[in-house]
Design a protein around this nucleic acid. Structure first.
Lengths: 294, 294
DNA sequence: TCAAAAGTGTTCGTTTTACACCCATGT
DNA sequence: ACATGGGTGTAAAACGAACACTTTTGA
């Protein structure tokens, strides 16, 4: 029952999580687990969208958690098993398909095909499994700070169909070629992860964006409720902006959310824990549950 | 180098083609290759979107062309090889990912995972490889006639996010559960192909729809130009409607197409080959070429 | 009283949708 | 002349985006 006789099927998983600056400062004791280190030392990030990475075997390089498929195993099971075995996380949310990556740069004698999956997990659950011999850590994908800096460097975010540290796409009308042209880290001369894992993160992030592009409850789709029982609209907005890599106007966001069949409902609670006028708190209409996307 | 020792990787391909009633009548000599036979005998279909199928080995059942992955083979190559070997078609257009199907209904001792791909091919090329010992034929996916009948039976098409014979989705606001709930043939008690191939066709069709959902040239994305050098706007509209499983108003379609950065350009030719006022002919701005989608 | 963030009113322009009408051809 | 399909005018409705202003708190 050796794996050597047949093209290998690799499973790679992009596990996203979202954490505030405060979360990261108070809950991560080893700051080398947070990359890029300079970003987190020298500048403010606000809310961060992060992807879980680990050290590649015997090297400095960082990779996504991954493994190989075992005989007689269902593919979905394999992905969950990989997470359990490699990083010790027993995922409760659904894993979703990213696609297949026929990576030509893996250098061994066997062709390896990567099936990849993504999911969003609570930061609470993720932080517990950081560190260890594999140096499990978090790589910045996007943040409010990143978007601000990107905008300062590249002009208005409206030219882009979402921006992230793992790449972005031009809106067709602003694209040099009138297409949905994209730029990945490798195009920009700044590879982040080893192998083709930057590509995988990018496509996973593009799928994550879809969760926020309809009128439907994104957290139902993701299977988690990262905002807690009751939350400010501005919390929801910031979360959404970081996941989508786009910003919207405050009033526009509010009015879009508070219409007939919204997935949130106003509570009678208010929150004064932050400066400014107290905010009404909202709650999700329906609890997160298993759901099938397209 | 046996395949028995490891979970098998199957490749299934959904090959779409579009043909008019006249095409089908004049070019298909064996009408049993056209399914469902009753539909094509008894009622008018107009323009049809079809998927290529063949007989399952030693059975009446119909399946998608498929095969198994060979050692040291690139996944994209495998898909092209399968088409070449099984149905004798040397595809010139890019194959696109549908997803992975972990089919639990395949009954042999080994778990089989299906990587599936789709493409759109010219009817001209497809018709040449129909028939043969595998009874290669065409299965109706959607048609103008199908949409008309569906609308008569189920009410306005606006309630649906596209309809086809292989399933449809409700628009969230019309869905029983306020989701993008879907109905597949198996839910409707009318399985069409064997195994889980109905699902594969459905998801392939959902991807095909994307080709027509932006302002970009769908034929550039598909890699073919099914309409020829010059075409009527109504031809383009009918093609698009059949692929999307949605209908739009004539004037709205026209105005959406004829705006600043359209992918078509008006020619100085006119066509009087059909009743009514002669139509201006249009042509594609840019020739089909390799393109990367998301 | 001021800064900060929440929240509302109003306007303007664009896109969507609908409906009605006119146009040019073959029979 | 009339059926058939192509093509345009117009207007209401819906939506997106911008901007300015008010509200309510803590410091």
């Amino acid at each position: 029952m050796t794996n050597d006789i047949f093209p290998r099927i690799a499973i790679d998983v992009v596990l996203f999580t979202v954490a505030s600056e405060a979360d990261l400062q108070t809950m991560i004791w080893d700051e080398t687990l947070l990359r890029p280190a300079e970003d987190y030392r020298s500048q403010s990030n606000g809310l961060s969208l992060l992807a879980l990475t680990m050290s590649a075997a015997g090297s400095e390089a960082r990779v996504l958690p991954g493994g190989f498929m075992a005989p007689n195993e269902r593919i979905g099971e394999a992905a969950k098993r990989v997470l359990r075995e490699r990083i010790g996380l027993d995922l409760k949310v659904p894993l979703r398909d990213i696609g297949t990556f026929d990576d030509p740069s893996r250098d061994d004698s066997h062709r390896t095909i990567s099936f990849s999956y993504w999911a969003m997990a609570d930061f609470e659950d993720v932080r517990k499994i950081l560190g260890g011999k594999d140096r499990v850590g978090l790589e910045l994908v996007n943040s409010t700070g990143f978007m601000t800096r990107f905008e300062a460097a590249n002009g208005s975010l409206e030219k882009f169909d979402g921006v992230s540290r793992f790449g972005y796409r031009f809106m067709p009308k602003f694209s040099p070629s009138k297409r949905h042209e994209k730029r990945l880290p490798k195009d920009l001369g700044g590879k982040i992860l080893a192998l083709d894992h930057d590509d995988i993160v990018f496509y996973a992030w593009r799928k994550l964006r879809h969760a926020f592009s309809s009128k439907l409850d994104p957290f139902n789709y993701l299977g988690i409720n990262p905002l807690g029982e009751a939350f400010r609209l501005s919390d929801l907005q910031e979360f959404q902006e970081v996941c989508r890599g786009e910003v919207v106007q405050r009033d526009l966001f509010r009015r879009n959310m508070i219409n007939e069949d919204s997935f949130i409902a106003q509570t009678n609670m208010r929150d004064s824990s932050r400066p400014g006028k107290p905010a009404n708190l909202y709650t999700l209409q329906s609890p997160p549950s298993e759901n099938t996307g397209e």
